[in-house]
Simulated scan of single mutants.
Amino acid sequence: MSAITSPAPATAAAPASNRLALTGVGFAVLFIASLVFSGLAGSTTYPSPFEADKVAEAYFADNGGVVLGMGILQLLSAVPLAAFVLALTKGAARAGLVRAAGLCAAAGLAACALIGLAIPVLDASGDTLHTLHYLTFMAGGPAHVPFLGIVVGASALAFRTSAPRWTTVLGLTSAGLALLSLATFVSESLMLLLPLGRFTAILWILVTAVRAARLRK
């Protein structure tokens, strides 16, 4: 599973599998940790940019340190995500689309984290707060999830002959949900597609990382 096409020779398979395992698990753990930290340490749930302005203002005023911690964890998670994609496509033919989509997904996540970090650092309020809050959603949602879905869907198809059938179905389902989440640009009522696409993609990445770790043995 070291490439999008056929498996690499045995001498190269172990290091590649090691990178897939470490980076895949690293991304999932850091990203999920950011959400768990926010949920446990925050005074309330992280607000949607579509809620009333006073809700967001109250949250960010009371949870500056939480927002900083969540942003740092998400920024860190973008690094193993990029490394996972590079390991996934290393030495593969016709892997340009997957590699480009993966790097765009990592860039979107990093942008989301950096913009989010700017809110407590700048002590933003009013229109500035609303703009930054909305940009974090756009960067980490519609600008990140569809690209992540492309990585997962294309890779699931490439591995369909060597991976369990259910992982292929999971990957393609995740890709479909992630691409459909682009509809959130049109209607906020479809926002549920974003977490569905995101977390099924993370699950596929975890499964792939675990399978890569088993290949080392």
Rank of each mutant, 00 (worst) to 15 (best):
R214F: 13
G126L: 12
F185C: 03
V207P: 05
H130M: 13
V98F: 05
S2D: 11
P49S: 04
L194W: 09
K90L: 08
P9Y: 08
V55I: 13
T184C: 10
R165I: 10
L157S: 11
S181R: 01
A95P: 01
F185T: 01
L122P: 00
A82W: 03
I115A: 11
W166Y: 13
L35H: 13
T173Y: 14
S155R: 04
P146N: 06
A110G: 15
L172P: 02
L81M: 14
G140Q: 06
L117D: 09
T89G: 02
L35Q: 15
M138N: 09
R198V: 10
L22A: 12
R216G: 13
C104S: 14
A183Q: 08
F159Q: 13
F27V: 02
L192G: 15
A41Y: 05
G116T: 04
L215C: 12
F159N: 08
F159S: 08
V121K: 07
L30R: 01
A209H: 06
S6W: 11
P15C: 07
G71V: 08
L203I: 09
L148H: 05
A83R: 02
P120W: 09
G171C: 05
A8I: 05
G126V: 14
S77I: 05
A82Q: 01
A118V: 03
F147H: 01
A106N: 03
V145T: 10
T45A: 15
G64C: 09
A14M: 11
C112M: 15
G149A: 13
L193F: 07
T131I: 12
G102V: 03
L30Y: 00
S48R: 05
A95W: 06
D53A: 15
K54D: 14
V169N: 10
G102I: 05
A143D: 14
A201C: 15
G69V: 06
W204D: 03
T167V: 12
A92I: 08
M1S: 11
Q74G: 10
G108S: 01
R160H: 09
M70G: 14
